[in-house]
Nucleic acid binder design. Structure first.
Lengths: 180, 180
DNA sequence: GCCAAAGTAAAACGTTCGTTGTACAGTTGC
DNA sequence: GCAACTGTACAACGAACGTTTTACTTTGGC
């Protein structure tokens, strides 16, 4: 019976996601992870440590599900993610919003910044492979569409992905030789 | 010296915005509002009541700054808002993420839903006035761009508005008679 | 001048928080 | 078989939470 750090973190992630960070007590977390208070503290050190670990795990888990080689496929990855995880808006954005009160402000901000940088560079790579060249403007626009889809999916539902797909293809086609 | 409910709510709004809802204690709020505990409770009833009141005030304040008659102008409104208020991602999204733990879940969800509906219908009206007809697809795409700009502005800065503007104009021009 | 209305300060309420301490059980490897 | 390790259960810590209470001050209209 492992009860490893990894298992604990994986169990706590959905709890933070659904109820927020500051609002979730250690009792709820130990119960969700099915471990004693002592064990959780041995492995994670503190609630702040657990929070950072959860965000790191989330980041790795998210990017490991992103196998896309085009932005349209990235939206399919997002669609699948939302089907499996639900849509409550970007967890990293929400974590950042509670960061300083979490007394883990520095650690949280670091992971959030890393997530955002990785997302940007992922989209940047997709743009290069689709357009055959770097295009920072297009990359920023697609980043906005991706983040917008993530946010709006919480109230538009699957329609958010459809609209994002449409907007993205429009942006990517811009500048193509006219076919009329 | 009024110390009215309105003043209290206005003073508490930036505190919630900067530090989160669950994480902000009543001491911090009374201090920010410069009122005694007793007065705050007399006017707002509870932390849950204050939370809902703050979100309602935020909604009215935000929409009253939106004087746009085109989506591009709406992005200018957003740009000005962000310059004045800072960019920490949509407060309503963050509030919803803490809603059930706030024990004001129902009230918060109601205001958040109302905000989102009003945003959608505002954009819908702009689309009608720009295209001369309803277009739900374009409206959804612009909503995504608006929400995406709101989110990404917290790390892209003013560049987020520029990219959103570019994406939006592309989406709005789509279908126009070709000029080549 | 006085009575309400509305404010203040400060202590106390019981609860819950994050965290630590104590005492004990199960497994593993040599 | 006996360390060493890793886990559990559970009580306890002080601090902070949201809220209420008590007692007092200020203010404005009639």
């Amino acid at each position: 019976m492992p009860t490893t750090r990894t298992d604990i973190v994986a169990s706590c992630e959905p709890v933070f996601d659904r109820h927020g960070f500051a609002a979730t007590g250690m009792d709820t977390l130990t119960e969700a992870a099915n471990v004693s208070t002592r064990t959780l503290y041995k492995h994670l050190g503190s609630k702040a440590g657990l929070t950072v670990a959860v965000l790191e795990a989330r980041m790795e888990r998210f990017f490991s599900t992103c196998t896309a080689s085009t932005f349209d496929e990235l939206l399919t990855d997002l669609e699948r993610w939302i089907e499996a995880e639900g849509a409550r808006g970007c967890l990293f954005l929400r974590a950042q919003g509670e960061a300083d009160a979490l007394s883990a402000g520095a650690g949280v901000s670091t992971v959030v910044a890393e997530y955002r940088q990785r997302l940007r560079s992922l989209i940047g790579r997709l743009v290069i492979s689709e357009l055959g060249r770097e295009d920072e403007t297009v990359s920023d626009e697609l980043l906005i569409i991706f983040e917008g889809a993530t946010s709006t999916a919480s109230y538009l539902g699957p329609q958010a992905i459809i609209a994002a797909r449409s907007a993205a293809s429009t942006v990517l086609m811009r500048g193509d030789p006219c076919t009329c």
